[in-house]
Simulated scan of single mutants.
Amino acid sequence: MNDAATKARVGAVRYLNTKPLVHGLDGENAPFELSFDYPSHLADQLSLGLLDVALIPSIEYFLGDNYRIITDACIGCLGPVWSVKIFFRTPPKQVRTLALDEGSRTSAALAKILLAERVGVMPQLQALPLGSDMRDCEADAILLIGDRAIHPPAIDAVEVWDLGETWVEWTGLPFVFATWVARPGIKTEGIAKRLMEARDGGMENLHAIAEREAPRYQLTTSECFQYFHDNLHFTLGPQEKAGLERYYQYAVKLGLAPSGRTPNYDDCEIAR
């Protein structure tokens, strides 16, 4: 699929948090075909063979069949992430129903883990469709991710958890929301190199990216830059891998992922 005659198909998340990772990849000379979609949709497309490489939710990496993490570029956080939140209408220990943003899978699993392990709650789950109005949802708690977590509608919340902050304070480890993953049989060395160059270029141009993107998301340039620089983390290093593996252990414990999966970082190490 990704030989010289046919460009590989690469899928990236359409949210604001991806912009530094795809810096400069949309030009005419891009080495692959790049498309954008919601994280959950990208995971489905990769699984169906409609994409060769995709930035998918971390939980989907552990659910996939012989998937490989191909770069050290990722979407993670070292503290508050701002764009992944649970809004509680009742105190966390009293939550009986949880609405999950349909675009989320890693964050949905993280919400279940934090509620079960920190406050001993395993609520009934409801879907919150993309494009739906949170005010029409009657669940005790609502998980929102991405752009609509940054600008949530008015809601009477007694407590709000920033899931990045909650995880880091609880475990002492970073959290990794998404990684660049390839399905089996795809040659990825050139793709991985280009994706890491894009991330590195994005990090060098955060202010310019923030200035360009901020108006599209009803943010000031300063807010957008702070989001990129302070809330997000784009490198999968040893601590991030430890955080990813801790997350996997909790996911297995709650039956959210199969046991016996060992993260494959070979391509990631070779590419770097």
Score class of each variant (00 low, 15 high):
Arg183Asn: 07
Glu165Tyr: 07
Phe234Gln: 04
Glu165Phe: 07
Leu236His: 01
Gly172His: 07
Trp161His: 07
Glu197Ile: 07
Gln218Ser: 12
Leu195Thr: 06
Glu189Met: 09
Gln226Cys: 12
Leu244Ser: 05
Leu163Val: 09
Gly201Gln: 05
Leu236Asp: 00
Phe177Val: 12
Glu211Met: 10
Lys193Ser: 14
Lys193Arg: 15
Gly146Ala: 03
Glu211Ile: 04
Glu204Gln: 14
Ile150Asp: 02
Gly190Thr: 15
Val158Ile: 14
Thr235Asp: 11
Ala157His: 11
Glu223Ile: 09
Thr179Tyr: 12
Trp180Pro: 02
Val181Lys: 03
Ala208Asn: 11
Gly202Leu: 02
Arg148Pro: 04
Gly243Met: 02
Arg183Trp: 02
Ile155Phe: 11
Ala214Gln: 03
Ala149Val: 03
Phe234Pro: 01
Gln218Glu: 13
Arg199His: 06
Ile145Asp: 05
Glu213Asp: 13
Gln226Val: 10
Thr171Ile: 05
Gly202Cys: 02
Ile155Asn: 05
Met203His: 08
Glu169Ser: 14
Thr171Val: 05
Thr171Cys: 06
Pro184His: 08
Ala157Asn: 09
Glu159Lys: 10
Val160Asp: 08
Pro215Lys: 04
Gly190Asp: 14
Ile150Gly: 00
Tyr217Asp: 03
Asp230Gly: 06
Val160Tyr: 10
Gln218Thr: 09
Val158Asn: 11
Gly243Asn: 00
Ile209Phe: 03
Glu245Tyr: 01
Val181Arg: 02
Lys241Leu: 12
Tyr227Leu: 11
Gly146Glu: 00
Glu240Asn: 10
Ile145Tyr: 01
Ser222Asn: 14
Ile155Glu: 10
Leu195Arg: 01
Phe177Ser: 12
Pro174Arg: 01
Pro152Met: 04
Trp167Ala: 07
Met196Ile: 09
Cys224Trp: 01
Glu189Thr: 13
Ala157Val: 12
Gly243Ala: 06
Trp170Tyr: 11
Gly237Trp: 14
Leu219Cys: 05
Ile155Met: 14
Gly185Cys: 11
Glu165Ser: 11
Tyr217Thr: 00
Cys224Gly: 07
Arg212Gln: 13
Phe177Met: 11
Ala182Asp: 10
Leu163Phe: 08
Val160Trp: 13
Gly164Asn: 02
Ile186Ala: 10
Val176Asp: 00
Ala149Glu: 02
Trp161Tyr: 09
Lys187Pro: 03
Thr220Leu: 08
Trp161Thr: 06
Val160Thr: 13
Thr188Ala: 15
Phe175His: 02
Tyr227Met: 04
Thr171His: 04
His233Phe: 15
Met196Arg: 06
Asp156Gln: 15
Phe177Gly: 13
His233Thr: 07
Ala154Thr: 13
Glu223Ala: 12
Ile191Gly: 01
Glu240Trp: 08
Thr171Trp: 03
Tyr227Ile: 04
Thr235Ser: 14
Phe234Asn: 02
Ala242Pro: 01
Gly146Pro: 00
His233Leu: 07
Pro238Arg: 06
Val158His: 08
Lys241Ala: 13
Glu240Tyr: 07
Ile145Gln: 08
Glu197Ala: 13
Asp230Glu: 15
Gly243Gln: 00
Asp162Asn: 08
Ala210Val: 08
